[in-house]
Design a protein around this nucleic acid. Structure first.
Lengths: 221, 221
DNA sequence: AATAAAGTTTAGGTTAATCTAAAAATTGTA
DNA sequence: TACAATTTTTAGATTAACCTAAACTTTATT
């Protein structure tokens, strides 16, 4: 069992992303574009990755990631997304400033570190961009997103995305502390206007109107 | 202004450590031993480091780190030690399991990340081994260690070392939550038996006997 | 002081990851 | 279908970081 180098991990991740979850075969030029490298370099690297069994490769026909390759790519993606959660939730970075740092952190090798980090972050299912975090076996949480407004009293969910992405709405959320990744517990629902009483991050209680809860996409735990 | 590679950073750190804070000149073989590499590789690297101005070098006479080199080495050491604090204080690693992971984390490039981490960890002055953490300008805290028993009521200090390193004592500390890095505030001192009421990590209060407080070495903030 | 031992450097080579330029294969089109 | 355009691969270099073996300095010992 080889360990992949940083460069190999980056190629594998790019191939995984470009192939829509590892199904499709991927072209050399597409990889070169994504990694800002030259097609010749990609050809070289593909041969190496195929020697290591993480992709299959037919000359001039593009590459396809193998099951082993997919597992390794998802492990890097898991690390990347967990670190992003750390940077946003614990170090107060904004979700749009964390990618570059996570690109470095994702290569740190220690599975114990990652399981401890996961625990420390309270097992988040989504990163700050709303992308799902694979579990240690490379499986993404299967629960689909639903509007907060559809949840019953007592449900616990995680905010993962918004329908309305207008500045005014995002600003409102920022002020109230409703960020992607926030844990939401439904305390009560008001029949007469559809508003909801919620508790966020086991801490603050607040009320949100039907208009707001319709626009907040969550995943039930 | 060049950026140093991971390998260059490791050489520079080794040279810094081997030269007792950058004063003495360092031999090729000593560096090779410490980095588990060959003297020939060290010679190669030394030429490169000297081209970049971080060491001065006279053939056959060893290397000496420059002021710029010292600054860069201390920056890596700062990052290493802050990550060690993170691993122990936040992810519950034991102080003797963190070195290898910190060896990887120390190369992550982002000064904003490090200043945020420093803040998140409440500006620790010592790592979990009791080694001082350089500040952002590469200066180590000058405050000397004192026994906890010598502090006045109201003093805030950080536990950095123990006089008694016997298993029984260390076990006692473990059970009470008194670890290296713990923040200690002196709440009250009892004249009649010299015992002390303290608050640890802004949280738990406890009483320690004179025998214990004599053996706990702290740095006053 | 001469020489043996120890330490250091140089010469020359290897591997990983990149590149440019040219050749080869595939695809699109008239 | 033939040829042009596009895509991909190969050939041959380059740079960083390492290595071994041999040459050269310095230091220690008789």
């Amino acid at each position: 069992m080889y360990e992949l180098s940083f460069a190999e991990e980056n190629y594998l991740k790019a191939i995984y992303h470009l192939s829509a979850d590892g199904q499709k075969q991927v072209n050399t030029n597409a990889i070169a574009d994504r990694l800002e490298t030259r097609p010749a370099s990609v050809s070289d690297m593909i041969r190496k990755l195929s020697d290591k069994g993480v992709v299959t490769y037919v000359k001039y026909q593009g590459v396809k990631i193998t099951d082993d390759g997919k597992k390794k790519a998802l492990w890097v993606i898991r690390k990347h997304r967990l670190w992003e959660v750390f940077l946003v939730k614990k170090l107060n970075f904004h979700w749009d400033e964390v990618h570059e740092i996570a690109e470095q952190l994702e290569h740190i090798r220690s599975s114990l570190l990652i399981s401890r980090l996961d625990e420390f972050l309270e097992f988040p299912k989504f990163d700050p961009h709303g992308d799902p975090i694979p579990n240690a076996d490379g499986v993404m949480s299967a629960n689909p997103m639903t509007p907060l407004s559809e949840l019953n009293v007592g449900s616990i969910a995680q905010l993962v995305s918004m329908k309305d992405t207008g500045v005014i709405f995002l600003n409102y959320l920022d002020r109230t502390g409703l960020n992607i990744g926030t844990k939401i517990k439904v305390i009560d629902t008001m029949e007469f206007d559809g508003s909801m009483e919620i508790e966020i991050n086991n801490d603050k209680r607040m009320s949100v109107s039907k208009q707001v809860s319709d626009n907040l996409l969550v995943i039930v735990e």
